[in-house]
Computed example of a mutant assay.
Amino acid sequence: MIQDARVVAGFTGAGISTESGIPDFRSPDSPWMRHKPISFALFLQSPEARRDAWRRKFAMDDLYRGARPSTGHRGFASLVATGRMPAVITQNIDGLHQESGLAPDQVIELHGNGTYAKCLACGTRHELDWVRRCFDVDGDPPDCRSCGGILKTATISFGQTMPEEPMRRAQKLTASCDLFLVAGSSLVVYPAAAFPAFAKENGARLVIVNREPTPLDRVADLAIHAEIGSVFSVFLS
């Protein structure tokens, strides 16, 4: 099916990174589920909420520091290398697609990226190592070095507006593809989950690879319930 496609849109969710040792956000035993999420509004309003958010962030970084791209990540990188897949749309924030060999412009991050921080006022990028050194010394996250604004990981929090440019790029790729390939997404988180449905409605074939059934399995051209690595290993050279 992929060999016959002109343009393939890749789409990945948490399941592709569970095989790298990073648990699904919604898994009952996930560290993220042990604490109530900090909303974007609360992050802005409360210095204590910001301290708590950064404490959680650094604890997660320590826990999953050894995570490396899975066979699934490397399989997508191989598909991009063929020229048929212009980019991978991802719900993940772990940067593992880039570690697998994809260039930044070949990864469309709908929910942002947790491997660096940005100023909410001026958008200046700050590396996490510097933020953590300051946090460990002062007990507070530092302010932006450029404008003094609030720093936050470059991710999309609950209640935060979805990023316009990635959403636009994802929409454009979805509209142009004739095959939409999903891996590791439950397809229940919107607006991200609307992309495969739109691709199908637009005439593209829809292939879903996920361990558990998804709401779109019934309209997919092919739904495979299996480990992602075992399926995508065929794309590795």
Rank of each mutant, 00 (worst) to 15 (best):
D136Y: 12
D136T: 15
D136K: 13
V137T: 12
D138L: 12
D138M: 07
G139M: 11
G139F: 11
G139W: 09
G139R: 11
D140R: 10
P141G: 10
P141R: 02
P141Y: 09
P142Q: 08
P142C: 12
P142A: 13
P142Y: 10
D143R: 15
C144A: 01
R145N: 02
R145M: 02
S146M: 02
S146A: 03
S146L: 04
G149Q: 04
G149R: 00
G149V: 05
I150Y: 02
I150V: 15
I150P: 00
I150C: 02
K152D: 05
K152T: 00
K152I: 05
T153K: 00
A154N: 08
A154H: 05
A154K: 01
T155Y: 03
I156P: 00
I156A: 08
I156L: 07
I156E: 09
S157V: 06
F158C: 07
F158L: 15
F158Q: 14
F158N: 08
F158I: 14
G159E: 12
G159D: 11
G159S: 11
Q160P: 11
Q160G: 09
T161P: 04
T161H: 10
T161I: 13
T161Y: 12
T161R: 13
T161F: 14
M162P: 05
P163Y: 09
P163S: 00
E164P: 02
P166T: 03
P166E: 05
P166V: 12
M167L: 15
R168D: 03
R168C: 09
R168M: 10
R168Y: 09
R169W: 02
A170Q: 07
A170W: 07
A170M: 10
